[in-house]
Design a protein around this nucleic acid. Structure first.
Lengths: 251, 251
DNA sequence: CGTAACTTTGATCTCGATCAAGGCTTGTGG
DNA sequence: CCACAAGCCTTGATCGAGATCAAAGTTACG
């Protein structure tokens, strides 16, 4: 475990001091999430090079590991846990631009500075790749670049959907859209959907206040659209109606 | 000119019937906007292949050439004119996700369907590339893929900025941000900035109504932040204050 | 258990939406 | 060159969805 970087929880998230050793050559070969991440495009024969490029890092809940405006030195691949990505205004107003979880790749940017911050919502494990080393890998493995382009294209589509949500949807439509987005994370739509974020995070993602999110969820409960469980879970009880609501086809 | 596709203006925009011949091998070599577009990554020696892949197309003002939800068959590169990209809800609410102009590349998507629509705001010329042919080009020219990744990364950063704007900025901050975005399109910030879109387009881009956009511009005029010219132009007269406003540092 | 953070619910306010006229610009045909 | 029409754009009056302010409930965790 000594090759993992750790940091202590703190009242206000500070930049994580990233350090740690590169993985052993065989590490990626047995990585459980390789199949669902960009790493899958590298063959077994070449995977040792990837392992040598990666530094596994542990980030404790509430800690930032990417800071908006800081020099963009690394790419990250999440191997477990949940992360929120956000931008902020000087007076503290915050917009969460996305949630990332196991298998997600972070840090795409042409600029030398990160355009967004990233903070762990729970204990997060990730592989860190320096941009310079990643560039060398991309030179040798064009499939990696192709996969990243596909990844970026998907994020672009998600971003466009979110712009429609933020610019034109009502509070109810926003929350409905959000819940349906979270349902896709679980295998069975009828089971409990985990919401590993606070009401404050939901509000900052949906362009609302915590009170409006709370009231809207309460309204959905009274309307028998959802049941709200303990410990940040929701179960959808009227999928059709929720879909119609999210798509802007109902009040 | 017979190798260009044209279409007549119509009351309500319909799908453009795209047809037309591929360009002559030497066409791209002398293309004026090659340097500022993705085409610049293909060397003179190979540019004939690109020319054979491209179909130049003319789109008249107000006509759509990409329809949200339609099969994603082509990529586009704008060679002149202005385009708006948008998503819509069933009841007509619309969110413009971006404006594209000379040199912009459109159509990135992993899905088989376009996630957004595109409509010409004035007379638009563009090169159309079938996805299948483009894929072959990317196989042979990894630099093309790298350039598209850079392009997509930049759009992603722009999308994140727009999410912050739509989710958390006030009407005044939105309009200020918009004007500063448009200023970057002209060489000299002190000269007239063209706004080749209607108030309705601005509103749909900024998540506001036309009345609020109009009122906000009037307010900026009385505050001596801008002067509003004839024929859809604006001149910025207090750049510093406008920047502060856009960044959320002032009321 | 106790406490600190998170969540819900209620009362009130406000910014931007909506409703409603007019004014201006642009283009067309006499 | 002017009259007219059809879109745009601006301005005013009013409304309302969601924000803000305030105060209990809950939950998580030492």
């Amino acid at each position: 475990m000594s090759d993992q970087t750790t940091c202590q929880r703190d009242a206000r998230p500070r930049r994580l001091i990233l350090a740690g050793a590169h993985r052993q050559p065989g590490y990626c070969l047995s990585c459980g999430i390789r199949a669902q991440s960009v790493c899958s495009v590298i063959d077994d024969d070449d995977i040792a090079r990837l392992a040598e490029t990666a530094v596994e890092t542990l980030v404790l809940p509430g800690r930032s590991f990417i800071e908006e405006g800081a020099p963009a030195t690394d790419f990250y691949n999440i191997t477990s846990g949940n992360v929120k990505l956000f931008k902020a205004l000087p007076d503290g107003r915050r917009q969460i631009t996305g949630f990332a979880t196991t298998g997600h790749f972070l840090g795409l940017a042409v600029s030398d500075l990160y355009a967004f911050g990233a903070e762990a919502m729970d204990t997060v494990r990730l592989c860190r790749f320096s941009r310079a080393r990643m560039r060398l890998l991309m030179d040798d493995f064009p499939r990696l670049e192709r996969r990243l382009l596909a990844e970026a294209s998907n994020e672009l589509v998600a971003a466009q959907n979110q712009m429609l949500l933020l610019g034109r949807k009502t509070a109810r439509e926003r929350v409905a859209s959000f819940l349906l987005e979270r349902v896709r994370e679980v295998p069975n739509p009828a089971e409990d959907v985990p919401l590993p974020m606070t009401r404050s995070d939901m509000a900052d993602y949906l362009g609302l206040t915590i009170e409006t999110v709370s009231r809207t969820l309460s309204w959905m409960r009274t309307e028998r659209l959802v049941t709200i469980g303990k410990g940040h879970t929701v179960r959808i009880t009227a999928m059709e109606r929720l879909h119609a609501l999210a798509a802007g086809e109902a009040g």
